[in-house]
Design a protein around this nucleic acid. Structure first.
Lengths: 116, 116
DNA sequence: TTTGATACACACTTTTTGGTAGGTACTTGA
DNA sequence: TCAAGTACCTACCAAAAAGTGTGTATCAAA
């Protein structure tokens, strides 16, 4: 997405680890700072870019679109842009994204048990 | 763990996000590069430092102890050091760590469905 | 005519993570 | 006496992630 040095040991290890371990694989798909928050919003249905922005107020616009682009590239969400002015863009979970529900629900269970 | 600037926006957002979102909370606990691999090893029982090193060959010693220290600090694993020479140190999952099993199993399911 | 809303894009800097390469202490076996 | 095994620790550097600030086009309302 943003300036990756494919030849670095870091990237080699990342590839190694994500191909050898299913947990690390999914962790890289949905485990960074903002992805879970965006995914969670979309569980309740279609949302526009601006709605997402307001729903996750602490996120910067850069991180929001970056997150959305990555999720889209990974097939977790879909993007539908209406060719009108002013622009109107809708985001949705794909089937793959909706399949994250049981994963997320187990994560929430654990967190509620061991979090404050 | 290593040189964190508590006052940065980065850290503030991290705190915000991990306290407000249970998914992000657990993601930070077990979702970085090496933690899942180490945790997985320990699912099969007690292991010594050197055994873990051999079981996860690509990991550097620095990352291995760093990973172990963090998991220990988070109460996910326990460390037992025998006061003998040469040293003998055993690592184990705590109850909290073992409770990651259902989470991990859901993650694996998703990964196997959507991975190559 | 300026402002606001829409949904971004891009250059730049700060902060964090991960990797490299060395060293520690102590003992046993060759 | 020299190497090997045990379980680490530390300083340093490269790379990635996250954050800041500005700019884009188009239209409608004030």
């Amino acid at each position: 997405m943003a300036n990756v040095k494919e030849s670095s040991t870091n990237q080699m290890n990342k590839r190694l680890v994500t191909t050898k371990c299913p947990v690390t694989f999914i962790a890289y798909k949905m485990g960074n700072r903002w992805k879970p928050l965006v995914i969670r919003q979309l569980f309740s249905g279609t949302m526009r870019y601006g709605e997402l922005k307001r729903a996750v107020p602490a996120i910067s616009e850069k991180m929001l679109i970056q997150t959305l682009k990555e999720l889209e590239a990974d097939g977790i969400i879909s993007r539908k842009a209406m060719p009108i002015i002013p622009p109107h863009v809708e985001y949705n979970l794909t089937e793959c994204g909706r399949d994250l529900e049981p994963v997320i629900s187990e994560m929430v269970k654990w967190s509620l048990k061991y979090n404050v």
